[in-house]
């Protein structure tokens, strides 16, 4: 575990970005998440690990209210972003999602040009009005997603024509273009080959300079490589949450230990 570089002091000093208290999620009558309490720190990579169906993706989707699009889904409890409850009636989910961006498991670029894909968010939020402003946002976002050099000569070609890894980085560029404060990533590398995965992981490491990143992953190596904080979910419960180092070297709960040593999951 010595290959994992973590500025632990920096983590301890950073502020809490998202605080979840007593969160319950129901799909119809089935409860998918039970009593989850978690503090996600700013400018930190937090990873959610756990076996399939343990609720980690569901919880992630609560953080930007993407669960609103599922009719039968109901969320209880409190999720505070900078101290404000994001489920309060006066919060507009549309505005919230501009602040809490999301990258999905399968790359999902729009059937538009690379340029339009990245400019999509800034345009609808009116963040950039003139052509020059949009150009600038697009370039900056693509650079941040480490994609600029590969696509700068073909910004008007369809985003769907890129390779899988490039598409995923394009989706990251699209998400960071709205200048979010938190970036949620739902297994962003599960559809990518090892090289593309390495590129995206490197990118995540850079993104944490500006954003708080929350990543759901099935790969414990990935969680160990990219994150400073790790939360282990099991059967809808948050079993253990702490520094990645501690979770992987000295887990407190026997279930966590069983999972990371490969006995359950």
């Amino acid at each position: 575990m010595f290959d994992v570089q973590k500025p632990e002091t920096a983590v301890d000093q950073t502020a809490i970005k998202i605080a979840a208290r007593n969160v319950q999620v129901f799909y119809g009558n089935t409860q998918a998440i039970k009593d989850v309490d978690v503090d996600i720190q700013d400018k930190t990579v937090t990873s959610f690990i756990g076996p399939s169906g343990c609720g980690k993706s569901t919880f992630l989707r609560c953080l930007n209210r993407m669960n609103d699009t599922i009719d039968s889904c109901r969320v209880e409890g409190e999720i505070l972003l900078d101290g404000q409850d994001i489920y309060a009636p006066r919060v507009d989910p549309v505005q919230l999602r501009a602040r809490v961006g999301m990258v999905f498991q399968k790359p999902n670029p729009f059937p538009k040009s690379i340029y339009d894909n990245v400019a999509y968010g800034p345009r609808i939020h009116g963040m950039a009005r003139t052509k020059d402003e949009i150009d600038e946002v697009v370039e900056k976002s693509l650079r941040r997603a480490a994609l600029w050099d590969e696509v700068k000569d073909r910004l008007d070609t369809p985003g769907t024509g890129l390779s899988g890894g490039q598409q995923q980085r394009l989706c990251i560029a699209r998400a960071v273009a709205t200048r979010p404060e938190v970036l949620l990533m739902d297994e962003p590398c599960s559809a990518l080959d090892p090289i593309a995965t390495a590129q995206v992981e490197e990118l995540i490491d850079e993104l944490k300079q500006r954003f708080s990143v929350v990543i759901v992953t099935h790969s414990m190596q990935q969680a160990a490589r990219v994150s400073q904080k790790t939360a282990f979910f099991h059967l809808g419960n948050l079993v253990e949450y702490g520094d990645t180092n501690t979770i992987f070297t000295n887990p407190q709960d026997h279930r966590t230990e069983s999972y990371i040593t490969g006995r359950i999951g």
């Binding site: 930007n64 999602r97 961006g101 059937p111 968010g121 609808i124 699209r174």
Partner: peptide, 15 residues
């Protein structure tokens, strides 16, 4: 149209 496109658009804060 795949659901992922709809999700992608909603996730950047589109109505």
């Amino acid at each position: 149209v795949p659901r992922s496109l709809r999700d992608g658009s909603l996730a950047v804060g589109a109505t």
